[in-house]
Amino acid sequence: MINYLKNNPDNVSEWFFAHVWLSVVPVVLGLIIALPIGWVASHYRWTYPPITNLAGLLYTVPSLALFIIMPSILGTKILSPINMVVALTVYSVALLVRVVADGLNSVAPDVRAAATAMGFTGLGRFLKVDLPIAVPVITAGLRVATVSNVSLVSIGALIGVPQLGSLFTTGFSRYIPGIVLLGIVLCLVLALVLDGLIILGGRLLTPWQRAVAKR
């Protein structure tokens, strides 16, 4: 495990950063897309069931299948990382839409009414009142999306997209368990670090919760 790292530092770090990129970009894109859709689902109540059901259905499609089907939709090459980014973005959107909608719905009607009474309207209220209050719920959703993405990305090695999963296939073809183990450990470390960063971000965005926790 350590030997391989010593002998191939460039390979490993390249794969590591590719993995980071492939895990993080889809979640960020997914959140950006899911916010407006989730808002629609929470704001116009009748859209909630169709939107969340569709999202649920998309989430049901296995990610590996999505990686493979993408080229026939996007016209990309089978080995292009774009396939994975798009597929995992779709996946993240599917997961986060419901989370965002539920998070926004969790804002107490009293708080909403008070905000409206104080003169907040439309976007202002969304950004300054609803969204901050929904942060804890959305954070929890982001953690699930990110952590499972790290694992899903590694499956991409099956179809040859280079990232930490390449350590699995390399180790397997050379029959050296240590290399595979290195991949597993790096995946776990990456997942834990990203998870920690999201928790931290969530805390920074919700100072009022820390104030309560301290008491």
């Binding site: 699930v144 694992s151 590694s154 999963g165 180790g171 995946c187 997942a191 998870d195």
Partner: peptide, 19 residues
């Protein structure tokens, strides 16, 4: 439960087979 979610299944499979 959370830690298990981070465990890459594909890697674990290959590790167990060759190990």
């Amino acid at each position: 439960a959370n830690a298990l979610r981070a465990l890459p299944t594909f890697g674990l499979l290959l590790y167990l087979v060759i190990g």
